[in-house]
Amino acid sequence: MLYLKNVTKTFNPGTVNEKLALNNISLHLAPGDFATIVGSNGAGKSTLFNAITGDFIPDAGTVTLNGRDITLIPDYRRAKVIGRMFQDPLRGTAPGMTIEENLALAYLRASGHTSPLSRITARERAQFAERLAELGLGLEDRMKQPVGLLSGGQRQALTLLMATVVTPKLLLLDEHTAALDPATADKVLALTRRIVAEHKLTCLMITHNMHDALSFGNRTLMMDSGRIVLDVAGTEREKMTVDDLLDRFAESAGHALDNDRILLSREEG
């Protein structure tokens, strides 16, 4: 499915700000894999996503998606098969356009419609309403309302739907609930779990919540200084507690995890 082979990226090489952001990363995701990623600030989590979506070309290594080497493919051509969500709820939707128009844009862009003048049909509109109803937020009755009237959580739920309205080959979630209040974040996370399971999506999710890191998906990756220092799955992961995870991290990285938000989330549960 997704293969990263020896991917390396250095930002600002040859200057005082030189930073080795990705250090010889290799990663393989099987179809249907749902891996969570945790790590301290600047560990390279978002940079890893950027390498996959094509924001930059790596200094070394290759990225392969579905058997096709996409290392040198420009980002806008990858965006058709890769769905991505950010932390900021304002980033993924157009506030002055209606819910229906936002969905139509996402759908027309990613689906088989090739003509720039293609429009959505009444049947596709009915499908949008069905998918919106599945969110359980009552948005299906508000399809003609501008997205700007929705709350952050509703907007993020809509963005999730837009990212998956045409099943992507790969879904990248970059702390997509971090800006929401806890109750709303739980709702969006439950939704994420359901949509990923329903469509058997291959998914990578960055989180700062250690419990989520263990309870979501089937794999947990920990990153530090541009490397993947821990990769657990299967029964080993099922038996793991948050403390075990932190211990293993300290063992592999050579120092304890220093992200306040992550350590705070350990107290919550």
């Binding site: 980002d75 506030p95 356009m97 128009e101 720039p116 003048l117």
Partner: peptide, 23 residues
């Protein structure tokens, strides 16, 4: 209401989103 028309509207509404969705 077409794909291109919606993209134009999104360009004025949320350029960040449009660039992120690689239009």
């Amino acid at each position: 209401g077409t794909r291109l028309g919606l993209s134009i509207r999104a360009t004025g509404d949320n350029p960040d989103m449009v660039r992120a969705s690689s239009i």
